[in-house]
Design a protein around this nucleic acid. Structure first.
Lengths: 251, 251
DNA sequence: ACTGTATCCCTACATCGTAGACATACGATA
DNA sequence: TATCGTATGTCTACGATGTAGGGATACAGT
């Protein structure tokens, strides 16, 4: 692999001025067998811990104890790494296409997606914006698989092609919006007890923002799970009303 | 950059090795009177034309025929410039708080927002993700004003504080999702007549993605405006059903 | 033994955000 | 008018980034 490229005697122990992120087990030659997946998971880890703007090819290489340039074997450029992170997260969505009640699966996907977003908040911007750059057919297959499976489910449930697409769009539009909403309310100094202060709302001019300031406690009491449930109910009843008579709403 | 470093008399005209973007009227000394707004609008222009990842302080300075460092007078850092871009876009949303039919305004805001997104597609990632980094109270006031106005409208219409907040969240969650959905379908080689090719779907393995490939024409026929209307109808009926009896749905 | 071909590593370059030193201009005070 | 503090503009420089290009090394097939 590499190791003392020159200077054959040196045990080599740099880069641990910071804690060394990877498993840090095998100190010897081959360390970790490296693959695209390993690279992407390491990248996701960095994003989770330090935020997306602190992900660089150099840091990634350091986390894997590899030369940064060697990573270009597994991804053509950094942008592909970012796409790959979205892929790694999204391919965790599992859909049971054989479920005879499609609304079950809608609810399941919704909760899975919310769970992923909460588990990887720093990756959410990648999830929602990366596809904007890439036409559908060129996206990583992992990100398209949930779409394919979801369509399969709906078509089996009796929807037409275009109806299935419509349901898919409604659901993911809703999910993207919900997750962005929910993460916006995350607060960074939760030790503060006063809601106004906790949200930083005290800096707003009172005369200009009376309503907003008045809503401090309501804002602080945001319950993402309940909000998601409410939204799902609305969405599903709305969909059932405007689509051809399919199954009932379940829940 | 260079110039005869001092030489006070010179009328100064370099940096036109590239076309000079700004109004390009006054060639003499003071060129354009510069303010925070001027900076932000220039930044928005660059984002519109070249994408957000091509915005740099140096390019921005060049567009304004100013030393890049002088921009730090109007924004403490680049991140504030990005926030400012979101602000410039969002403060174009206008809400008539005196409208007695709140659903009118919901529809109006929705269409305005979609219009802004289509006018500034490259800025959409900023609109939806910048607030994630910043707690509510610290965001640029321009981005909070639509929120405040919207709350005002709803409360005047008879909603309680928390209901108003709920409606706001539902609407903007929906809008964010819708806009992200719609922009994802934008296609970059529209001259291609075959939908499969136009969307790049032909690259997908047929055995793995039969549904998706089969939906090429449906995908290509996406009508954002109609989709928005449908979604609004769903949303409004859903909201009306679960909120205390307020006005009727209009439209 | 020779010749590709795949893998790895390093150096180098252009570009970035921005700290810090300097220069100039200007309004207030003396 | 002379002096000085402050606001404004400019230039240089530093550390970091993405990634092209060039070897080096190893291994497969002839």
């Amino acid at each position: 692999m590499s190791r003392p490229p020159v200077e054959p005697g040196h045990p080599r122990h740099d880069n641990n001025d910071e804690a060394s992120y990877p498993p840090a087990d095998a100190r010897a030659q081959p360390r970790v067998r490296i693959t695209r997946e390993v690279v992407l998971h390491a990248a996701l880890r960095i994003v989770d811990q330090q935020g997306a703007e602190n992900l660089s090819m150099r840091r990634l290489g350091q986390a894997l104890e590899r030369d940064p340039m060697s990573l270009y074997r597994y991804a053509p450029n950094k942008s592909a790494v970012l796409d790959g992170i979205a892929e790694v997260v999204l391919e965790q969505l599992s859909i049971d296409v054989t479920d005879t009640d499609w609304t079950n699966q809608v609810r399941s996907v919704a909760h899975q997606f919310r769970g992923l977003a909460l588990a990887h908040p720093n990756a959410v911007p990648l999830l929602v914006t990366r596809p904007l750059a890439t036409p559908l057919g060129l996206r990583p297959l992992g990100t398209l698989r949930p779409l394919e499976n979801f369509l399969e489910l709906l078509i089996r449930a009796g929807f037409s092609d275009t109806e299935a697409l419509h349901v898919y769009r409604s659901l993911f539009g809703f999910l993207f919006g919900h997750v962005l909403n929910e993460l916006q309310e995350i607060v960074d100094n939760p030790e503060e007890t006063d809601d106004l202060l906790r949200l930083g709302l005290h800096r707003l001019p009172i005369r200009e923002f009376p309503r907003l300031r008045g809503l401090a406690s309501a804002l602080a009491a945001y319950d993402g799970h309940a909000e998601l449930e409410r939204g799902l109910d609305t969405l599903l009843t709305g969909l059932l009303a405007q689509l051809r008579p399919a199954r009932s709403v379940g829940r």
